[in-house]
Design a binder for these strands. Structure first.
Length: 152
DNA sequence: GTTCTAACA
DNA sequence: TGTTAGGA
């Protein structure tokens, strides 16, 4: 029996590389069209992983963060190329990171005896909530749960 | 239903 | 960049 509290396992258990999103999900989260995402990738501005069965694009947390930063720069008035250069030079903007984390983190609760991070609604109709569930073996499992099924 | 490529108003 | 066609 470990003396650690369950929440002490969070920093170690959070493997952001396991947090991957499909293009439609990224598009909604960052407000960048799928057309833009494909175009940006074609131009070499961003990257995606396509090693899955359907050869479809998936983005890990770091790719997502880069996209969010480019988008923010564009919102600030930069051109696409200007935004990319800015992000390449200065890396991720902390405000963007914090803003994203703040908007993504919607609290913690227990699901089936395991601590789970509420990452917020995952669709425009607010029917599904994304949870990052910390399993007993400390691995993280991301799961979409219907609002109606989300007890508590 | 989602994503893919290619092409064009 | 948006949108649409035509498949997977």
């Amino acid at each position: 029996m470990s003396s650690k509290q369950w929440y002490e396992t969070f920093p170690k258990a959070l493997d952001l590389n396991k947090l991957i999103f499909k293009i439609g999900e990224v598009s909604k989260m960052v407000s960048v069209s799928s057309r833009q995402l494909r175009y940006w990738e074609q131009k070499g501005y961003i990257k995606s992983n396509r090693s899955n069965n359907h050869n479809s694009r998936v983005y890990n947390f770091y790719n997502l963060l880069r996209i969010a930063n480019i988008k923010n720069r564009i919102n600030q008035g930069y051109t696409l190329i200007g935004a990319v250069h800015k992000v390449n030079e200065h890396g991720n903007n902390l405000n963007t990171v914090f803003s994203f984390m703040r908007e993504s983190f919607h609290g913690i609760k227990m699901i089936h005896g395991n601590p789970a991070i509420n990452l917020g609604y995952f669709d425009h109709h607010h029917k599904q909530i994304l949870y990052g569930i910390i399993k007993s073996n400390q691995e993280v499992e991301y799961q979409l749960i219907n609002k109606s099924d989300a007890f508590n």
